[in-house]
Every structure is written in structure tokens, then in C-alpha cells.
Simulated scan of single mutants.
Amino acid sequence: MTKLRLYLTINYAFSAFSGTTMLLFSEQLNQIFHFSDPLLFPIIGANLLVFAVFVFYVTGWQIEKSGLVKLISLMDAGWVVGSVFLLLFGPFGISPIGLWIIGIVAVWIGFLGYKQYSNL
């Protein structure tokens, strides 16, 4: 398995896991993050599952198309930028543990995006 394929595989597996977790445990996540919107985590989770399917497709059948891999890395960068915004400005009254989770996931996604891009 090439390094690029490895990092893309980790990306889609983590995205699928995260999306499924958000769909199945949205009430618990709302409590952890101090959110009250019952649709927030299911919407993010469903979008993560769509992203995971896209990354899975690229990994299996389109990995030679560097533009698609760059797009995935760009979307990862967008996640990181959004996370940094949440961490810096705290616009929604996110709990301290929620902020830690956002920060840890942002570092992880940033790492995956960087490794994907650098292994093109």
C-alpha cells in the first residue's frame, strides 16, 4: 500500500467513524459540547459520511488523479480553518471539553491533509 493510499484510507475510515458517531450519539455529543440544537451533529455527521464515501471512491478508483487528492486535502484544510475559528472566537459557547475535542481533531485532520498532499 502506498503512503498516499494509506493516509486516504485513514481519512475515510476516520470520517466514516466520526460521521456515524455523530448520527448515533448526537444527544450525548450535545451534552458534552453544551449544544441544544438536535440537528447539528446529525447534519455534520451525514456530511462526513458523504465525504468518507468520496474519499473511499478516490482511494480505490481515482487515486492517480492528483486534482481529486488535492481537493480532499483542501477540504481537510477547510475543516482545520473552521476549527481554528471556533477555538479562537468561541462563538457558540462550546464547553471546554468540546474545545479540546475540536482542537485534537483539527490537528489530526491537518496532519492527514498534509500527508496526503505531500505524498502526491
Rank of each mutant, 00 (worst) to 15 (best):
M1S: 13
M1W: 05
M1I: 13
T2C: 12
T2A: 14
L4F: 01
L4H: 06
L4T: 13
R5F: 10
R5Y: 11
Y7K: 02
L8K: 06
L8S: 11
I10D: 03
N11M: 09
N11C: 13
A13C: 15
A13W: 10
F14Y: 09
F14N: 03
S18Y: 11
S18Q: 10
G19D: 06
M22R: 06
L23T: 07
L24F: 14
F25Q: 07
E27D: 14
Q28G: 05
Q31H: 12
I32S: 01
I32H: 02
H34L: 13
F35E: 06
D37P: 11
D37M: 04
D37G: 05
D37C: 03
P38S: 11
P42L: 02
P42M: 03
L48G: 02
L49H: 09
V55D: 08
F56G: 07
F56V: 04
Y57D: 06
Y57H: 11
V58T: 11
G60T: 10
K70E: 12
D76V: 00
D76H: 11
G78Y: 03
G78D: 02
W79L: 09
W79M: 06
W79E: 03
W79S: 05
V80P: 05
V81Q: 01
G82P: 03
G82R: 02
S83L: 03
V84T: 10
F85K: 01
L86D: 03
L88N: 02
G93P: 09
S95P: 09
I101T: 06
I102H: 05
I102C: 06
I104K: 02
V107H: 00
V107R: 00
V107W: 00
V107K: 00
W108Y: 14
W108C: 13
I109G: 03
I109Q: 14
G110R: 07
G110I: 03
G110A: 06
G113F: 01
G113N: 07
Y114Q: 08
Q116S: 07
Q116E: 15
Q116Y: 01
Y117A: 12
Y117D: 01
S118H: 12
N119P: 02
